[in-house]
């Protein structure tokens, strides 16, 4: 099923997808966010005593998360659905291109844009952080890696929803899952949940199905210099990558079975 030709086709679809997005000037937003980040950080630093570099890092990583997740959700929702709506999908899959290769290519194409966005904004953030006097910490790399994983999961999640429901509902569902995914560990600590075994079981089931984004949030640990075991970082990375791949395969499977009418 997967031979060299198929990989070439995935690469071709990915290349032209990212080229089309770059030409649509989406990355201008990234540059604007970058400039905004510099201005906001400069202003925030003026009101801060003691740890201005931490403020710069906090703002930078926050902006990085918001912009990456926004690009993933708002561009991801159109990635496959617009192909079907505009019938561009017909002209591509009427070629010797397996449907799954088309899905992989489209997702990789947008993922490349996400990576460029993350690269630009993290370069600005870290440059500012080191310029102000911040010290290098290995957890910075892990935090950026996890933001990348989080936005990739959101990208594939919204693509998957867009195949089975409308664009508006896909965006709403994805954002709801994002919020729940970040707050679920806090919710589990509530007395209401801990005293209610049924509710606790429901939340446990959630863990097996929907993404636990809270696991990928290292910002607090980084800002308060908390140590994290390497085993945790490794297992969470495997979880994030595995979850993302599972979603990609599920999306490709749904697209494979879907009537493109």
């Amino acid at each position: 099923m997967l031979n060299r030709k198929v990989f070439t086709k995935i690469g071709t679809v990915a290349y032209y997808t990212s080229r089309e997005i770059i030409k649509s000037k989406v990355l201008v937003n990234t540059v604007l966010i970058g400039i905004g980040l510099l201005i906001v950080t400069y202003i925030a630093m003026s009101f801060t005593y003691g740890e201005p570099s931490r403020v710069a890092l906090d703002f930078g990583l926050g902006m990085l998360t918001i912009s990456s997740v926004s690009i993933a959700v708002f561009m991801g929702v159109s990635l496959l659905s617009d192909e079907m709506k505009n019938r561009t999908v017909y002209i591509i899959i009427s070629r010797p291109v397996p449907r799954f290769a088309f899905v992989f290519g489209k997702i990789i194409g947008l993922a490349l844009i996400l990576l460029i966005n993350i690269l630009i904004l993290s370069t600005i953030t870290l440059s500012l952080y080191f310029y102000i006097g911040g010290n290098f910490e290995p957890l910075i790399n892990w935090t950026i890696l996890y933001i990348t994983l989080e936005s990739l999961i959101m990208l594939v999640l919204v693509c998957l929803f867009s195949l089975i429901t409308s664009k508006v509902l896909s965006v709403i569902l994805s954002i709801v899952i994002y919020i729940i995914g970040h707050s679920i560990d806090g919710v589990k600590l509530l007395t209401l949940v801990q005293t209610n075994p049924t509710l606790e079981s429901i939340l446990d089931i959630y863990h097996y199905i929907l993404p636990g984004f809270y696991k990928l949030n290292l910002k607090q640990h980084l800002l308060y210099k908390q140590d994290i075991a390497f085993e945790y970082l490794l297992s969470t990375s495997i979880y994030g990558i595995g979850y993302c791949l599972a979603l990609v395969f599920l999306t490709a499977w749904i697209f494979e079975k879907k009537n493109l009418d």
Partner: peptide
């Protein structure tokens, strides 16, 4: 195959689009 009322990637140039389709074939 040519679909009805074809709509192609608006920001690609015609030549790029031809190369895209050619490479897929």
């Amino acid at each position: 195959f040519l679909p009805e009322r074809p709509f192609f990637y608006p920001h690609l140039k015609g030549r790029e689009f031809c190369h895209f389709m050619g490479k897929l074939s």
